[in-house]
Amino acid sequence: MPGVTKEHAPILTIVKVKSKQTIDIGTGKITNHEESEEIGILDRRAFLNVLNNTNRGLASPELLRRLNEYETLIYLEESSVHDEKWEKATTDKVRIENLLIREILHGYKRLVMKLDIEDNHSITMLDEYYN
């Protein structure tokens, strides 16, 4: 996406939920309405499904550690009420997402250069965007 920084274009899905509650004064009836909007390039659920269905035998130890941290933080975030623990899990999850993306790209670049299967143009573009 030209002209968009990585901070403004999340790779993994962020769900923004708007809640609205109306009360009919005459009847006392309460109506709740929620709207969800997904922002991102890749759905978090699809990402986790790919991870869980992939042979991790050739993955670096650092990548495996980040994947396990990420999966744990998502579990904590989704199972907690919005309290201090939830806030910490969410903050840590965003930090791990960025480290996870960097580790995936680092492994990709290392493999491409080792196998000499592509010109350096795509690697240069990745370096410019993620460094």
Rank of each mutant, 00 (worst) to 15 (best):
I25Y: 15
L48D: 04
K114Y: 12
H82V: 03
R56G: 03
I14K: 15
R44C: 02
K93G: 05
K29P: 07
I117C: 02
S36R: 04
E118Y: 15
Y75K: 07
K16W: 12
L48F: 10
E62Q: 12
L58E: 10
L100D: 00
I74H: 03
Y70M: 04
K88A: 06
I11C: 08
E118W: 14
N120D: 13
E128S: 08
V15K: 15
I117Y: 02
R65H: 14
R95H: 13
I101Y: 00
E71C: 06
E87D: 03
I96Y: 08
I117A: 03
W86G: 00
I96F: 08
K6Q: 05
T5M: 06
L51Y: 14
N98C: 12
S79M: 08
F47D: 00
E37P: 00
R56E: 01
G28Y: 06
T54W: 08
I14P: 00
E77K: 02
K114L: 09
T13Q: 13
R45E: 07
L12M: 11
V17A: 06
M125C: 13
G57R: 13
S19P: 04
L51H: 14
E69M: 07
T13M: 11
L111P: 00
T90S: 08
E37L: 02
I41R: 00
I25T: 11
E69R: 04
D92P: 00
S79I: 05
G28D: 03
L115P: 01
L115Q: 11
K16D: 15
L12K: 07
R102V: 06
G3F: 02
M125I: 14
E7I: 04
N53L: 09
H106L: 06
E78L: 09
Y108I: 08
E84F: 04
K85H: 07
N49R: 12
R56A: 04
I14C: 04
N131V: 12
K16T: 11
I25L: 13
I25F: 15
I39F: 05
W86V: 01
P61G: 09
I25A: 14
N53Q: 13
H121R: 15
A46L: 08
E84Y: 08
I123T: 09
L48E: 06
D83R: 03
Y130E: 15
G26P: 05
T31S: 12
M1P: 00
S36L: 02
T27A: 10
G57M: 06
K93E: 05
W86F: 05
R95K: 15
R65I: 06
K109Y: 01
D24Y: 10
T31L: 10
K114G: 10
E35F: 07
Q21P: 00
R56C: 03
T90M: 07
T91R: 15
G57F: 05
G107Q: 09
L67N: 14
E97F: 10
